[in-house]
Amino acid sequence: MGALYDELAKDIHLQEGLNACINCGTCTAICPAAGFYNYDPRQIADIVQQQDDKQIEELLKSETIWYCGECMSCKTRCPRNNTPGQIIIALRSYAQEHGYFTQSEKGRQQIYLKRTVGQWILDHGYCLYLEGVGTDNHPEQGTIWDWRQDNWTETMDRLGANYQKAGAGAMRKIPEEALEEVRKIFEVTGGMERFRKIEEYSAQKASEMGLEDEEYVKEVYTTNSSQDNK
């Protein structure tokens, strides 16, 4: 209907995730995010299927689209084969490609995810690379995590890993040629472009907020206004 919806509808997640929502609310009943936040996946499906650009734009700027945990429990239960979790993936992609994500507290967190998970993938070939990631940022990891951090290589060796070494095995050093292929894939398929956009829009927002880069990342990682917590 509108130009924004038409663009959004090119995303395969929207094509697969939205057929015809009958507003029954089964997704909301099963949703872990709806149990914690004032969040209603039924409404997301309903707003998007109305194809009203104004309302969709409001969604893109909102906190709401960042509450889903992508567990996809909604996919199992929808009697009309919709998946609000997939609609969310399409909305979040769009929000990052067009800069809307920095307008919400939760959306701004994407820079932290890009700088950690994204960078670990490019640098090491793993989504998580946790040596040195301690209980200061993850206090719930407990006393065992402190012990593991103190003895990272020794515990890896003890448990048959191949930490930072050539050859096969857990936490091996992934060959440079393999990492180069992954980086090339990111370049060719738009992954690197996504990362660049996250950086650019975040830098703009940091400047608007009068924060240095490091302060901004810390701010987005820790700030929780709890406005929609139940």
């Binding site: 992508e70 990052q96 998970v117 994204g118 989504c127 992934i174 738009g190 992954g191 996504r194």
Partner: peptide, 17 residues
């Protein structure tokens, strides 16, 4: 390597990648 799955579901990695 990693399949990038956590990056995909944290929405920083596009589906094509």
């Amino acid at each position: 390597t990693s399949c990038t799955g956590i990056g995909y579901h944290a929405d920083i990695v596009p589906f094509d990648t």
